[in-house]
Amino acid sequence: MSSFFDDDDEDESLPVARRQAGPPQQWGNGAKASSSRSLSREQSLVSESSLEVGGGGTGSRSFLTRLESTISPRRGRYSESIGLDSVLDGEDAAHDIGIGHEDNDELDLDLDDDPDLDDVQRMCRVWVKERGTVDIMQWEGDLMDTLFDKLEQQAKMVNTLRSDPQTSEEEHFKLVLVQTEMERVKFLIRSYVRTRLSKIEKYCQYILSTPTVHPLLSGAEMSHAKRYAELLHTHFQHSVLDSLPEWLRGMEDTYGDGMSMVAKPNKNVPVLIYCRKDCGEITLEGGEAAALAKGTTHLVKYNLVESWINLGWAEVL
């Protein structure tokens, strides 16, 4: 459950696709000339070196390595920017979220600032976090911008290469992989944005009346919240409120039982968390203490571990 790609039956192809999905900048130079020949020239140069890296692999492994080398001719620079070296051992799925590997702990410690995480992996984390919590999280504007840029660049490249008659059959196959991966990244973004939208709509009054929440939203989201609240208010007013006595037309009453008309995120819901760092002890409601040691998984109420989740020390599953 750690990875969104886990259920996939084509895991085999994923590392390749991801790698292709990665390096728009470098590849862009090659693609601008839209010359598959210059690519393949570099391929022959690099495939030797990368075969050394992945040396001794099985048949399919060396095929993967070859694929990779065609797509990212300058592996050095590429892995520097995208940091997918770890994928070479073919266990990419678990790396997406970065759990489930004991030998992986070092890598996990730096959490979201981990330079070894590529944008897609980071997006995965952000997405899981947003979906796993009731609260609205920080809007990841920069990450989204980068992803959008990359997607756009790749779409251009794919189009150029596709219309290039010199593109070989094998490269067309790779292009399909690239496009599939692009679709998957788009799915992630879409789901992320829509999760946020549904939260915003659900809690729009709370969000508008709580200034501390405002910085978490992007400008577009904020204006959406405002306009949605207006829309809803108008709807309620026209439908029933206008025909009620005047003293009953408010939208922010609190009822006798303490229920407010303003819906707030219910922070008492339990969340399943995985501790990436030692989070110390928390006091449960019954007065008991529970230790959140590194590498353990707990099911606790959200408000008890909220700060750890925000710090990134604990991760929502």
Binding site: F4, F5, D8, D9, E10, F148, L151, E152, A155, V176, Q179, T180, E183, R184, K186, F187, L188, I189, R190, S191, V193, R194, A220
Partner: peptide
Amino acid sequence: SDFLDVLDLTASIDRPPSEL
């Protein structure tokens, strides 16, 4: 409309696309 040049927000999110 902010996103439209890259992705269509209203497309389905039932399950991740596995095939092109």
